[in-house]
Simulated assay, not measured.
Amino acid sequence: MRWPPRRALITGGSSGIGAALAIELAAAGCEPLLVGRDADRLGALARRTGGRPLRADLTVRDELARVADAAAGVELLINNAGAGWHGPLGAMTAGQISDLVALNLTAPMELTRAAMPELSHRGGQVAFVSSIAAVGVHHEAAYAATKAGLRAFADSIRAEGVPVTTVLPGAVRTGFFDRRGAYTRRFPRPIPPEQVARVLLTAIERETPEVFVPSWLGLASRVRGALPGTFRLLARRFG
C-alpha cells in the first residue's frame, strides 16, 4: 500500500484514539471515513479533517452491515471501536457480556471479513486496537477476553495476503474510563491518545505486525508466554 492511503475507515472515530488517528491521517493527505455513534462529534471531526461521517452502532446488525459495505471501498481499515467493563464477572448481566463481545470482537471480525477481498486487490491493510488487557486482567475478564480474541484473530488472518498490524496500548486518557469506571491503578500511567495514534500509524506504514504502547508493556506479554507461573503470581500481586 502506498503511504498515505487515499481512503481509510476508522471505527470509534468520533473521539479518543480514533479521532487522533483521523487527524494524523488527514494531515498526511488521506480521506478518513469516520464511524461512530455520536453524530455531533463525527460531524465536527469530519469538518476538521475533510473526512466523511458515518453514524452507526456496530452492535446493531443492520448498521454493522451498512459499515461493512463502506469498508469494501477503503485501502486501510482500522478497527478501533471498543468498550470496557470493570468489576467481578458475576456482577455482569448476560446482555452486558453480549454487547461487549459484539462491539469489541464480532464487529471487527465482520468488518475485516467484508473488506478483505478488496484490501487484497488494492494492496491495502488492516489494523486492530487491542489492549494490554489481552494478557488477562483482574476484574476485567470479559473485556480482556475480547481483546485477547482480537489479537488472536489478527494473528490468524495475517497469512491471508493482507498486512495486519495490532497495537496493544496500556491505559489511555480518553472517555473510555468515563464509561467503564475510573482508572485507579498506579501503573501503567495513562498516556495521550495521540501517542497511540502515532505509534500505530508508523507501525502500519512499516507493516509491523504488533506494537505495544508504551513499548515496555511488551514485557508483560513475553513473561506470560515464557514464564506463565511467574506471570500469574505477579498478576495476583499487582492486579
Rank of each mutant, 00 (worst) to 15 (best):
D99F: 00
M1H: 14
G12S: 09
Q125N: 05
L217V: 03
R224G: 11
V60D: 00
A107L: 07
G12K: 05
L119C: 11
P192Q: 00
R180C: 11
A182Q: 11
D178K: 08
F231V: 01
E207Y: 04
R189S: 13
E63F: 08
A142C: 05
F187L: 12
Q125P: 02
L227V: 07
G50V: 12
A159L: 14
R232M: 06
G123R: 03
D40E: 15
F176M: 05
Y143L: 07
G84R: 07
G82A: 05
S221M: 05
I78V: 14
G12N: 05
Q195E: 13
A197F: 02
I23N: 03
R113C: 06
A83D: 01
R37G: 00
S15D: 10
R2G: 12
N79Q: 11
A152C: 10
H121Q: 13
R47A: 15
E118Q: 12
R41E: 03
G73A: 13
R179Y: 01
R66V: 07
L9M: 15
R237N: 10
V101T: 10
G43K: 03
G43Q: 04
V199K: 15
W3I: 13
R185V: 05
A107P: 08
H86W: 04
A39T: 15
P193L: 00
V164S: 06
A83E: 00
N104A: 15
I132H: 06
R237T: 14
A107W: 04
R6G: 13
R122Q: 08
N80M: 04
A235K: 07
R7H: 13
A71T: 09
V172I: 10
P53V: 03
A56K: 00
V162R: 05
R48D: 12
R37A: 00
Y143V: 05
P108Y: 01
P108Q: 02
G51Y: 15
L219D: 12
